[in-house]
Simulated assay, not measured.
Amino acid sequence: MYDTIKSEHIHPTFVALGDIDDFKYINDHYGHMCGDYVLVSIATIIKDILFQSVGIVRWGGEEIVLLFEDEDVMMPKAMLEQIRQKIEAFDFNFDDQHIQVTMTFGLSAVLDDVDDAIQNADEHMYQGKRSGKNQIIS
Rank of each mutant, 00 (worst) to 15 (best):
M1R: 14
Y2M: 04
T4P: 01
E8M: 09
P12L: 03
F14Y: 15
D22H: 15
D22S: 13
F23W: 04
D28G: 11
Y30Q: 00
G31Y: 00
G31I: 00
C34R: 02
Y37K: 02
V38L: 04
V40W: 03
V40P: 01
S41C: 05
I45F: 02
I45T: 02
I46W: 01
K47Y: 07
L50W: 07
L50F: 12
Q52A: 11
V57M: 08
G60E: 04
G61P: 05
E62S: 02
V65P: 00
L67Y: 01
L67C: 09
F68T: 05
E69T: 08
D70G: 01
E71S: 08
M75N: 13
M75K: 14
P76Q: 12
A78L: 14
L80K: 12
E81H: 12
Q82N: 10
Q82Y: 04
A89C: 09
A89Y: 13
F90Q: 10
F92G: 00
F94S: 00
D96E: 15
Q97V: 14
H98S: 12
Q100V: 12
Q100C: 08
V101T: 09
V101I: 11
M103D: 01
L111V: 14
D112T: 07
V114R: 00
I118G: 04
M125D: 12
M125K: 08
M125Y: 12
G128W: 00
K133V: 09
K133A: 07
I137Y: 06
I137T: 08
